[in-house]
Write a protein that binds this DNA or RNA. Structure first.
Lengths: 153, 153
DNA sequence: TATTGTTATACTCTATAACTATA
DNA sequence: TATAGTTATAGAGTATAACAATA
């Protein structure tokens, strides 16, 4: 439900400008990510799943937590990726209900190439900044959104 | 197809850190946008459409250009929004083939509330920065992604 | 009883292809 | 012929509800 909050704290002009800039930058960044994923016939969600599984394999339910999606949604995502040979399901030996998921070598390679290609696709923008500016921007973004690892793309 | 480019220019460590930070920040921002839209039973695409139409009404095909989507996709989006009373189609009086789209007052109000609520939802993060830092961040983002208006969220 | 995962169902988003009406 | 828009179709992503198997 829409929690209407008519007495929200008013935002300064500078705050609004920053929010607009962040939203705009995010849309551009996501568009690059989506396009890069599509070049490999992957959705953004599939690419995120590969990125997560590259760092840590685990149970279906853990995957659901990381991606913030329902378990039934994960079943479908894993189905399609498994059919493409990108990952494999294995029954959890300790819990008869559990199913673990791990990338195949093909999946690992695709995740790696995807990450590399995203970086290349974004680099024309990031290269605009000097070394000092880049470091400053990273520091500001981490102040706002938390340091490395707080979120899993 | 995946244009594999094995000889892409290598990226410095600083560049990679900046790219990672931008991607992470974008995912967080988009998650806030998606959640806020969902509170009004809107998809992110629907919210974008309302935001675009708030600034300028126009032809279906213009909407397709702004959103970067196929015209057939726009037909469906407009169908559902029209059924909800958020916008209205009117035949273009100058071109018998054309159909113009404009928000209803209900649509305008929802677009306005949506934008306000997004700003409120993002403000806990942006407020972390001082006035000077915020201004600096906006300048850096605009250097990278172009100034206001280059992209339409 | 509670949890894990799957399945059935329904809806949105998206593109492609085929179509119509107009230019 | 070319353009604007719609429709039919197909497939992915998503959630809810119902379910089976296991804990």
């Amino acid at each position: 439900m829409a929690t209407s909050n008519p007495e929200a704290r008013p935002l300064s002009r500078g705050q609004v400008e920053l929010i607009d800039a962040m939203v705009r930058a995010s849309f551009v960044t996501m568009a690059v990510l989506t396009r890069t994923a599509a070049e490999h016939d992957l959705s953004l969600t599939q690419l995120r799943m590969l990125a997560i599984l590259r760092d840590r394999q685990g149970a279906m339910s853990e995957l659901a937590d990381y991606l913030g999606l329902d378990r039934s949604t994960i079943s479908g995502l894993v189905d399609r990726a498994e059919k493409r040979g990108l990952l494999r399901r294995t029954p959890n030996p300790l819990d008869g209900r559990g199913v673990d998921v791990a990338l195949t070598s093909e999946g690992i390679e695709l995740a790696h190439r995807g990450a590399e290609q995203i970086a290349q696709a974004l680099s024309p923008m990031t290269r605009v900044l000097s070394r000092v500016e880049a470091r400053r921007l990273v520091a500001l973004l981490e102040r706002m959104f938390g340091p490395d690892g707080a979120y899993e793309p």
